[in-house]
Design a protein around this nucleic acid. Structure first.
Lengths: 220, 220
DNA sequence: AAATCCATACCTGAATACGGCTATTTTCAA
DNA sequence: TTGAAAATAGCCGTATTCAGGTATGGATTT
């Protein structure tokens, strides 16, 4: 039904690992329907190149990149160039990462451990505006929707600015007394905050607090 | 001086990301001096293939992989096949990762954001038993050696089996009493172990313990 | 055979964390 | 401007952690 499959696919690939980028280019360079128009090593460069290459209709991108990451790139691209379809090529298949980037406008999501054939299939789907997902991506999304999300739900709690500040100090091995002195507030206030953080994150003790801090990217 | 540069390089590549693996193969397949003998997606598979292909003399591997990771693979390979030189191809350039895997017998270490030419140069160096490092790898090693190593040195401490076992339980938010009950040992013993772990890891309290556990890969 | 490491166990006392509350002021958005 | 959320502060009692030791039997290594 869609005749758009006949149209040449003008591709841009974005990844901060040059070897991976070059490898993908090498894999795709002989594909008849696909033309590689540009490559970028981060989101900012990608946006610049998009401005210059008006014919680009598919963008393949990694998520974790310096300067401007995949999520932010998606948001920008969808705002400025709504006709450019985005295929995410990531290492991670956890439902959290997937859902976040799909919300930001990605059309497809495949993993770096898929093969060449599937990559091309995914590119063609996405070029037509059709969603494409790796098998394990689909499974994890389903698992995320149906049940057993207990481990994920605690990352959804929202800590206040002050709570994050205090959790950072706790993670730096400060005692409650030291935190009170550092922030010029009462010992009792720090304890109140800590108790609130523990309630929100369902942590039983310091161990749980630090594990949450690590997961949430508050430390390291 | 070394005439070994003339000898054909029989390569094995190990990476759990199929697309990356295929990309590298595609990049190298036209190189005259290099022959790709085998590919594997984890350490176990690599060891099996090494047994079958006696001619392999260079092994390129990622660090983080399922089942048997790069570090453990290095150790095994150096023990069983000391003539196989290992080139590590990693995303991370922190001195901690680098030093750890070099201790385990890797000959070279380059990053995934290097180019095709440098990759080939690195392979040739390593095939001759010569070390090869990416520029940023060299820089980070230097920074690690010269100063500011306080944060790194604690990963070098060696915990005993029992200590790791207890640290795992601490990380699971168990109290000292619960750990004692779980392991059928005295409360005092658990406390002794905890104190020893804290001394070794230079942790001031639970927060430091959990951060160490995360860094050392004992939790998550 | 001696030395070292490991796992075990104990002691004391101070410091800190934890659980479960109440309560006031400030800040910010509806 | 009114109500909710956030930041502040407090109380009480128990549980746990932390710092500083000492000590012993067993396994391993030298």
């Amino acid at each position: 039904m869609l005749d758009s499959t006949a149209k040449t696919i003008e591709l841009m690939i974005v990844d901060d690992h040059k070897l991976f980028l070059d490898g993908i280019v090498s894999l795709l360079k002989d594909s008849p329907k696909i033309s590689i128009a540009a490559c970028a090593s981060d989101g900012n460069q990608a946006l610049e190149l998009l401005q210059q290459n008006v014919n680009i209709n598919v963008l393949i991108t990694d998520i974790s990149m310096p300067n401007l990451n995949g999520e932010e790139l998606c948001k920008e691209v969808k705002k400025k160039y709504p006709n450019v379809h985005i295929l995410v090529l990531s290492m991670h298949s956890d439902s959290k990462s997937i859902k976040r980037i799909l919300k930001n406008g990605a059309t497809g999501y495949i993993l770096k451990n898929t093969g060449k054939e599937e990559l091309i299939e995914a590119i063609e789907h996405v070029a037509n505006g059709q969603a494409y997902f790796s098998e394990s991506v689909k499974n994890n999304i389903m698992a995320g929707i149906t049940g057993m999300e207990e481990s994920d739900e605690n990352v959804n709690v929202r800590l206040t600015k002050r709570e994050v500040e205090i959790l950072k100090l706790i993670s730096s091995e400060f005692t409650t007394n030291q935190i009170a002195d550092t922030l010029f507030i009462s010992l009792h206030t720090v304890e109140s905050h800590r108790k609130n953080i523990m309630r929100k994150t369902k942590a039983k003790n310091m161990a749980g607090l630090i594990k949450y801090a690590v997961k949430a990217g508050i430390v390291e």
